[in-house]
Amino acid sequence: MVRSIVPLTALALLWCAQAGAQFQPPWPPPWQAGQRPAWPTQPSTTSRTPDYRFSWSIETSSPYVHQPVLLRLRLSGDEQPTRIGLEPPRPGTVLLRRVHAEPPRRAGDGTTINTLVFALLPLRPGRLDAGPLRLSGSHAGGAFEVGSERPLRLRVRPPAPGIEPWLPARALTLTSSLTPEGPVAPGEPLRLRLELSATGTSGEQLPVLADQLAGVDGIRVYRERAQVDTRLSPDGRQLLASRVETHTLVAQHAGRLLLPEIRVAWWDIARERGELARTPLRTLQVTDGAPPPGPRSTGTRRGWR
């Protein structure tokens, strides 16, 4: 079995999306270590050298390994920059992914404040020193670079034993729906929708569910493209993730056919205990005497066989 925690490098993080399955990078390009996330802002009309100050705050300084935590960066100055970029931390420590950039606002003293929100992913357990964070960019008069006064240091907790693949989260739910629900005829397609919703993790970390449908007796499974999403909650305080898989099921013969229970093991960060999300077993009634789904049912059944 492939282990859930694997050796990591500065350029890519590979982990097992499901125990024994293929490895895949957790963040889609370009949000990988060694690259500088940058984005433009509104230009300024002044040309003097601005005075910038940079500070940051983090959701927790003691996350679990592979637990994304929110990192907020605040850049204030007397001139609005035209471009802001975050310098990569020390290699092999963390991955960063930008999830939100608040609109610039002006403080009472006339300074402009830019707030940027990143998801930070610790790569390994133990004491982790990523060094001081640095922002660089440009303004109307040239370039700038500014660092934080304090370094980014984390105490990263190891994965709990027995949870594979390792999936830390604050909440996780698994739901399913099957249409139509009544009796069907052999060759008549059914639509199975599986949805994982989680708080405190990324959509790319949620496991693939399709493999648990493999080898179902008497049913062919046609997998469609999964929808994966990672976003910031409306209040800006949590990372939200979802994975939606849609499958077309086609019964090959009449009788009572069983769909397996779908399970996802995960680690509850708040309660510090393992949890198991699951969908119940489903029984399909397949009969040759079932009414056809419509005038095109004959052609549809032939196409799905």
Rank of each mutant, 00 (worst) to 15 (best):
Arg237Lys: 14
Arg305Leu: 13
Thr246Val: 15
Val244Ile: 13
Leu14Arg: 05
Ala119Arg: 00
Thr49Asn: 13
His253Val: 04
Asp78Val: 08
Thr41Tyr: 15
Gln212Trp: 10
Ser242Thr: 12
Pro26Cys: 01
Ala270His: 10
Pro122Met: 06
Leu123Ser: 03
Asp288Met: 05
Pro207His: 06
Thr46Gln: 15
Thr45Asn: 15
Leu73Thr: 05
Arg302Val: 14
Gln205Ser: 08
Leu257Phe: 09
His100Trp: 12
Thr175Tyr: 02
Arg256Gln: 11
Ser62Asn: 15
Asp235Asn: 14
Leu135Ala: 04
Leu71Ile: 10
Gly92Ile: 00
Asp78Met: 10
Gly147Met: 05
Leu194Glu: 01
Ala130Cys: 10
Glu164Ser: 10
Trp266Asp: 00
Ser136His: 13
Leu174Met: 09
His253Gln: 13
Glu149Met: 12
Gly294His: 04
Arg305Lys: 14
Arg305Cys: 09
Gln238Phe: 05
Pro125Leu: 08
Asp288Thr: 12
Ser4Asp: 09
Ser242Leu: 07
Arg256Lys: 12
Ser61Cys: 14
Gly299Ala: 13
Glu272Tyr: 11
Gly142Asp: 08
Asp235Arg: 10
Arg170Trp: 06
Ser297Glu: 07
Glu181Ala: 15
Ala143His: 13
Arg256Ser: 11
Pro37Asp: 09
Ala10Ser: 14
Glu275Phe: 04
Gly182Lys: 09
Pro291Asn: 04
Arg278Gly: 14
Thr93Val: 08
Pro165His: 00
Ala169Trp: 00
Gly218Ile: 04
